[in-house]
Simulated scan of single mutants.
Amino acid sequence: MHWLLSVRVRVRVRVRVPVPVPVPVSAAAASSSSAVRESPASRPWAGCRPVNRPRHAGRRRGGTLRASGWSDEIRRRHVPELPEVEVVRRGLERWVCGRTVGGVDVLHPRAVRRHLGGGGDFAARLLGRRIGTARRRGKYLWLPLDDGGSAVLGHLGMSGQLLVQPEAAVDERHLRVRIRFGDGLGTELRFVDQRTFGGLSLHDTTRDGLPDAIAHIARDPLDPEFDDAAFHTALRLRRTTIKRALLDQSLVSGVGNIYADEALWRAGLHYDRPTAGLTRAGSAELLGHARDVMNEALAAGGTSFDSLYVNVNGESGYFSRELSVYGRSEQPCNRCGTRIRRAPFMNRSSYFCPKCQPIPQSSKARFPR
């Protein structure tokens, strides 16, 4: 008896445009961060790696870490922060800016829910417009249009992706918006969002070119016009704790849970420390550390805990391998060897070293040994 075995083979070819290597945001940002600490001796974390995690441990194809390396809470609640959004902005600046929109397909209404006119109006108003230089403030990015008074505002939410793909590429499962161009280059811009917390919308712009919907958001530490002195003054006036202040987008934008924990660890400050007691030198040092860690994340392409955060070419960032405290509960501190602790914070988590970041006297009752 003969048996006939039928084998079906599927071959999928995906073409991607090469992505530029990220570079520091600006010379001004780099100089302002390095001015706070001048000697290597004052930067004991430099060159440190998690002592119990090899350099390539947990790596998988695509550049993200295996799920077993990070808790479900981290992967579920990770929101792209300033470095991740800046990496995407740079990709848009290279591959999208200067192109004219030839067509728009809105495939899911939630993707444009912040556009008051709905999907049809969004597509009609964008048609024929030439896209200007991509800009960003904090975690928001926008594409100015050639009418001089409006812009496409984008927010990635928890799983949003802005991808530049060949027109012939297979549609992603969670493709929400497609923007085609009329220049014959053969690529299009796609907004992909699994959880649909992000979105695109059209807004009028202010005199400074800022979309009116985000006019209330403060500048971020990498912005050359960020005012360090004004930040310190506002910080001292807030009756709150230091990490809550860092996450307050009306005070400073772009610093999220990951980079707040990393900057506080480098500065040796506990996240529950009251802002009223922070000196001018202390706030300057904290800002310097925040700039350092975000510039380092930029150089690594951002932080990816899963496949949901990618740049415009679908590639993940690698800074998750360099994290010193975030997500490392019960692992030894890279600086002193004490076990990292995790504590609930604003429906999320804070990670800190109890030795390097002493618990404030006013908070000790809430942090049992």
Rank of each mutant, 00 (worst) to 15 (best):
H2N: 13
P24R: 07
A27E: 15
A28V: 12
A29E: 01
V36R: 09
E38T: 14
S39M: 11
A41V: 12
A46S: 10
R49I: 11
R49L: 12
A57I: 08
G58T: 02
R59L: 15
R66A: 15
G69T: 06
D72E: 13
I74G: 01
P83A: 08
E84P: 03
H108T: 06
H108D: 14
R110Q: 13
R113S: 14
G120E: 13
L126E: 01
R130E: 11
G132V: 06
R135D: 05
L143T: 02
S150P: 06
A168P: 05
A169Y: 02
R173M: 10
H174F: 12
I179A: 04
D193Q: 05
T196D: 08
T205K: 02
T206S: 15
R207F: 13
D208E: 15
L210E: 07
D212E: 15
D227L: 09
A230F: 07
A234S: 14
L235Q: 01
R236S: 12
L237A: 15
R238Q: 12
S250A: 13
S250F: 09
L251W: 03
V255E: 00
N257M: 07
D261M: 03
L264E: 03
T279S: 15
E285L: 14
G288Y: 02
G288D: 05
M294F: 06
A299P: 00
T303N: 05
S304E: 01
Y309D: 03
V310C: 06
G317I: 03
N334M: 11
G337L: 05
F345R: 05
C353M: 07
C356I: 07
S363Y: 09
R366C: 08
